[in-house]
């Protein structure tokens, strides 16, 4: 059990999302940076479906009421653990056990937007339509965390299943991966294939955040023909800037408007996270995990799953390129 003392920019409970209800107007939701959330869960030996905290731009602070095991991943935010007589840095992308009474505080990330905190056993909140994700568009699922809120953890009641670590193998396979300094001697199976895959996948989401302009892959949609000219070529010449009003619902990109015969009316069409809509003012809107299930503006392209992960960590003002992949 933990008590929230500060909820930072915005702290949401997220899991892998709410699937199979789009035809009823219910979006997927779920962690925006899935590989980071998945890595956090793997580090504490959780099921892939366990719910984690998604913290926007740091600032989360909570007190543990029992001994808890957790891992922090995603945007590196410099966390500390403090107890009565000590304060120390909390390692990133590692499994860490903290004592009852200790306080964890996340700083502001140096790069990226969203930091993930997984607790061994997962967060114990009720599922809504098969998911514990907080949907900021429809308000389904748990509300954003507030100050004073007490969160139950599944480890509160159940003794976790533990497996002895295959210590001889873990260092062979993991030492050359980023963000892993010393993996400690936890009780997790650290060499599990799931964890290795999660580490590799999460390593890509922030890799270019502070070095050069990222290029995000998308495939053209059937409505790319609305654009006058070759969409792929037109995009190679354009630089897009992430707008201030971007959110989990949609990330807004401004740039030199694409030449388009904008339709006077447009019938609503089913959409997905990754759908790239063109608004009447030329702005592009890439739907995030909480994006609506249908859209009334033309979708000219669809961002790849990897592109969406990169987008989850790009701050307003960041620049990016879009590239149409075959």
């Amino acid at each position: 059990m933990i008590t929230i003392e500060s909820s930072g920019g915005l702290t949401l409970i997220q899991d892998r999302g709410r699937h199979s209800f789009r035809q009823l107007g219910v979006g997927w939701s779920g962690a925006f940076d899935q590989p980071a959330a998945s890595l956090a869960n793997s580090l504490v030996a959780n099921d892939a479906d366990a719910a984690v905290l998604e913290v926007l731009l740091g600032g989360l602070r909570f007190v543990a009421h029992t001994t808890i095991t957790l891992a922090i991943t995603g945007a590196p935010s410099g966390a500390t653990v403090s107890s009565e007589d000590s304060i120390r840095e909390m390692p990133f992308s590692q499994r860490v056990e903290i004592p009852s009474g200790a306080k964890v505080e996340l700083g502001v990330p140096t790069v990226g937007m969203r930091t993930y905190v997984a607790f061994a056993g997962g967060i114990d909140v009720e599922q809504v339509l098969g998911s514990r994700s907080s949907d900021t568009l429809s308000n389904l699922g748990p509300r954003p965390l507030g100050v004073g809120q007490v969160l139950s953890l599944k480890s509160d009641s159940a003794k976790l299943r533990t497996t002895p670590p295959p210590a001889s193998r873990q260092s062979d396979r993991l030492t050359d991966l980023p963000d892993i300094n010393s993996l400690g001697s936890g009780t997790t199976d650290l060499a599990s294939p799931d964890l290795v895959a999660a580490l590799a996948a999460s390593a890509t989401s922030l890799s270019q955040s502070d070095s050069g302009t990222p290029t995000l892959a998308a495939s053209s949609s059937p409505h790319a023909e609305l654009v006058n000219g070759n969409l792929a070529e037109l995009l190679t010449k354009r630089l897009w800037t992430v707008g201030d009003r971007s959110s989990r619902i949609g990330v807004r990109l401004s740039g030199d408007p694409l030449p388009i015969d904008y339709p006077s009316s447009w019938e609503s069409e089913p959409t997905l996270p990754g759908s790239i809509q063109i608004a009447p003012n030329g702005e592009l809107i890439i739907f995030g995990p909480d994006g609506p299930t249908t859209g009334g503006y033309p979708v000219i392209a669809v961002a790849s799953a990897e592109a969406l992960v990169r987008l989850s960590q790009l701050r307003p003002g960041s620049q990016l390129r879009l590239q149409i992949s075959a």
């Binding site: 209800f21 035809q23 009823l24 107007g25 429809s138 609503s268 089913p270 609506p292 249908t294």
Partner: peptide, 10 residues
């Protein structure tokens, strides 16, 4: 079809 919000029917 549905859209806009859960259970919002066109």
């Amino acid at each position: 079809f549905c859209g806009f919000a859960p259970g919002f029917a066109y």
